[in-house]
């Protein structure tokens, strides 16, 4: 089921780019997105995908909130922390996880370790020992 998400993604980009819903265009889009090779061998479950996609939607207002916070109160201190990744993630879901963390302005993923954790770079208001 999650394999369809790949197809939907390609078709969405195609229709947004061409802005044309005629039969010929739909046919071209569907054909090309079916013909393009699919890389993911382990797509993950649909539930995981839906939850992560929902988290992306929630992250947008969160990102603006953090942006205003660091504009109003200066965050001068930098720390590097280690966060645990969720277990058994497919590459696509890992990408979305890293995207989520890096998208919010206070945190940036510096490195992902194979053993299942991230190095996250944060900025903070107060020095933490």
């Amino acid at each position: 089921m999650a394999g369809y998400l790949n197809l939907i993604l390609r078709l969405t980009i195609w229709f947004l780019l061409t802005d044309d819903l005629s039969w010929a265009n739909i046919l071209i889009g569907v054909t090309v997105s079916l013909l393009l090779p699919r890389g993911a061998t382990n797509p993950g479950t649909l539930k995981d995908w839906l939850r992560t996609l929902w988290e992306v939607v929630v992250a947008i207002p969160q990102a603006y909130k953090e942006a205003f916070e660091i504009m109003i109160w200066p965050h001068r201190h930098e720390v590097v922390t280690v966060d645990l990744a969720k277990p058994r993630r497919s590459p696509g879901l890992l990408f979305l996880d890293i995207f989520l963390i890096t998208f919010t302005p206070k945190t940036i993923v510096q490195r992902y370790r194979e053993q299942g954790w991230y190095e996250v770079h944060r900025i903070q208001r107060e020095e933490v020992p």
Binding site: A67, I70, M71, H75, E78, T102, F103, P105, K106, I108, Q110, H121, I123
Partner: peptide, 11 residues
Amino acid sequence: SVLYKLHGLSV
């Protein structure tokens, strides 16, 4: 540092 500026650029 580069990383600190990166936070600003992400805003």
